[in-house]
């Protein structure tokens, strides 16, 4: 069996208003607030999420470290399901999930052997083989390009006035450019990388979240270079010392730059920040008491939804007092 692999150019132009939505395991468990608020924001912005039925775990970083073929297979199954539902675009709200799918995309596109082997394995497992490889985007990129700051401004009923936000992007939203296809927006034509795509964020200085939250009335504080500093990621449980130090650096930078709240866009980063924030506060480390909230939760509040609608209570770091002080909830 040999399906002809078309070496395609990177996707250019728009992403589409209706996409396959791959929530990932976290969003249906502890990060339910992110799922609920994402749906609210998408509805408000006039975008449609088509839930990817019967998906499986993307394997995250942990599976990738142990098995190459297993991880490819897990992601190829999800891609095949998206194709079956008639989508050529998958949107994932989690940095880990979007990374895993984009990584699979990279290897499937660049290595013919991988593509053929994976296809025959998919057939064996009772899943439709891939004829075309769907592209994966992070949900932030999708919101920015298909709705944009203007639409957010238009929809905002209760501007987040006076709220000072530190935008935390985490690692895998912009990195590595091989998979995420980000590029330097300030660079010249020659500096652009061969696999970059038009809609991708700036690689070293991402700004999409800042732009959306600013349109909703919030003030962004200076947060470089901690906005893409690692939170400990896949080691947040297995290597506590390193993770604790990284999170401490992130939280202290945010606090010392005057942030009221940290806006996150990945359930793993969010959980890691909240968990270690709690631990650091118990240890009595200074300047770490900044709460975290998903950027969709903040947008939801700006769109006129209440704290209960966006499940602010689910955040273990409890951002409600901060928002109450400003009269937002």
């Amino acid at each position: 069996m040999a399906v002809a692999l078309q070496m395609r150019k990177p996707p250019m132009g728009g992403i589409g208003k209706r996409v396959a939505y791959y929530p990932g395991c976290s969003l249906e468990g502890a990060a339910r607030a992110y799922d609920v608020s994402t749906r609210i924001v998408a509805k408000e912005l006039g975008l449609e999420l088509d839930y990817l039925e019967d998906y499986n775990c993307c394997g995250a970083m942990e599976t990738k470290n142990v098995t190459f073929w297993g991880t490819m297979l897990l992601n190829a199954r999800n891609m095949s399901l998206a194709k079956k539902q008639g989508h050529s675009v998958i949107v994932a709200p989690c940095n880990g999930c979007s990374f895993s799918l984009q990584r699979a995309e990279y290897f499937l596109e660049t290595d013919k052997k991988v593509f053929e082997r994976i296809n025959s394995l998919l057939k064996e497992g009772g899943v439709d083989p891939l004829t075309e490889i769907p592209h994966t985007y992070h949900i932030l990129e999708w919101f920015y390009h298909e709705a944009g700051p203007e639409k957010v401004k238009e929809r905002t009923k209760k501007p987040l006035k006076g709220l000072k936000v530190a935008n935390y992007y985490g690692c895998l939203y912009t990195r590595p450019h091989f998979y995420a296809r980000t590029y330097s927006h300030g660079g010249t034509e020659e500096q652009e990388r061969p696999r970059m795509r038009e809609t991708a964020d700036d690689d070293e200085h991402p700004y999409y979240m800042e732009a959306l939250l600013e349109a909703a009335g919030a003030t962004n504080v200076e947060f470089e270079p901690m906005h893409t500093q690692c939170c400990g990621g896949p080691h947040s449980l297995s290597d506590e010392q390193v993770s604790e130090k990284f999170v401490m650096m992130i939280l202290q930078t945010a606090k010392r730059n005057g942030a009221d709240i940290i806006a996150t866009e990945c359930p793993l980063c969010h959980a890691s920040l909240e968990m270690y924030r709690h631990r650091l506060m118990m240890k009595g480390v200074p300047d770490v008491d900044v709460p975290a909230a998903y950027f969709t939760q903040l947008l939801g509040i700006a769109f006129g939804y209440g704290a209960g609608d966006v499940k602010l209570k689910d955040n273990l770091s409890d951002p409600i007092p901060v928002l109450k002080r400003l009269g937002l909830v």
């Binding site: 468990g29 499986n56 942990e62 142990v66 098995t67």
Partner: peptide, 23 residues
Amino acid sequence: YPSKKFDKFFLESVYEYGRIEDG
């Protein structure tokens, strides 16, 4: 090493159910 132990533990859960559960 610790991270490998965790990786295997994670993989077992994925293998068994297809999905993981945070708690």
